[in-house]
């Protein structure tokens, strides 16, 4: 894929006097992290394919403040939140979709009390609804029959009780879904949350992502499916530490769906 994607911004929409159906909140990882950018692009392709009228904030987007809040810096979090809410409200945003469970959780649960109330959904939920509305069709393609295990992101699962949307999508891909012994509400964290992503772990005898990767490897998967850019990084590193990167891929569900359609 070499051609630039068509990704309209809210500013362009505003200038044209239009309003999109949904705002795609890209998030910091989705904007800057090399691995996560691929997820962003895959999701954008799916949005185009389903003819979704969407826009992004582009350079007007800023960190939701989640890592600052979880690190204890409530001040910085609220500064970020209030700034973002000003932008979102100025564009009269109603519906937000994001591929990052941390952005999802913060926008959905922590912005309303600060004056920012939107209908916020995770990209797996959005893709599921697109399929149900018949706007997006999915076939197994290259993933049909492959052994896949899904790692529940804490901020999608336990934090917000979304367990079924990602699994529903995987079933649509006709994969052989195998669950880890700890899954859904008992799922083990990948180790990135609570701002751990940005620091060295405290002294211990193991890294959390390695422990979690071992759970995943026990299911003998072809692919470890993820729904969060941070989980993706952690699990990818875990697979590398087990020297399994040649045989086991870590992929976001959006990427799998896009690949299955040769997008």
């Amino acid at each position: 894929m070499s051609e630039a994607l068509n990704v309209p911004t809210m500013a362009e929409y505003m200038a044209a006097g239009k309003r999109p159906e949904v705002l795609f909140w890209v998030g910091c990882a989705g904007s800057f992290d090399d691995r996560a950018k691929k997820i962003t692009k895959a999701f954008v392709k799916l949005l185009h394919k389903a003819k979704v009228d969407f826009a992004v904030l582009g350079t007007e987007e800023s960190c939701t403040g989640d890592p600052a809040k979880r690190a204890g810096n409530e001040f910085l979090f609220q500064m970020q939140a209030v700034t973002n809410i000003e932008v979102l409200n100025a564009y009269e945003i109603k519906k937000v979709v994001t591929a990052c469970p941390h952005c999802f959780n913060t926008l959905k649960n922590e912005y309303p009390a600060l004056g920012g109330t939107y209908d916020v959904i995770h990209h797996t939920q959005f893709l599921k609804s697109l399929m149900e509305e018949g706007r997006l069709t999915v076939e197994g393609g290259q993933y049909k029959g492959k052994r896949i295990t899904f790692h529940d992101p804490c901020y999608l699962g336990r934090a917000n009780n979304v367990y079924e949307a990602p699994r529903e999508l995987l079933r649509k891909l006709e994969v052989e879904l195998t669950e880890m012994k700890r899954c859904k509400r008992n799922g083990l964290c990948c180790g990135a949350g609570g701002a751990q992503m940005f620091k060295e772990p405290e002294p211990g005898n193991k890294d959390v992502n390695v422990e979690r990767t071992e759970d995943a490897l026990e299911t003998k998967p072809d692919i470890i499916a993820a729904g969060c850019p941070f989980c993706n990084t952690m699990m990818t590193d875990g697979v590398k530490s087990k020297e399994k990167e040649a045989s086991i891929a870590v992929m976001d569900i959006a990427e799998m769906i896009a690949n299955a359609q040769d997008l």
């Binding site: 910091c28 904007s31 800057f32 692009k41 350079t59 800023s62």
Partner: peptide, 21 residues
């Protein structure tokens, strides 16, 4: 985050660069 609006040292003005990469 305070200076660039992201937890990494990237410029906020580069936030949409991914679409052309």
């Amino acid at each position: 985050i305070e200076n660039n609006g992201a937890p990494w040292p990237f410029n906020q003005m580069d936030r949409l660069n991914w679409k052309d990469e």
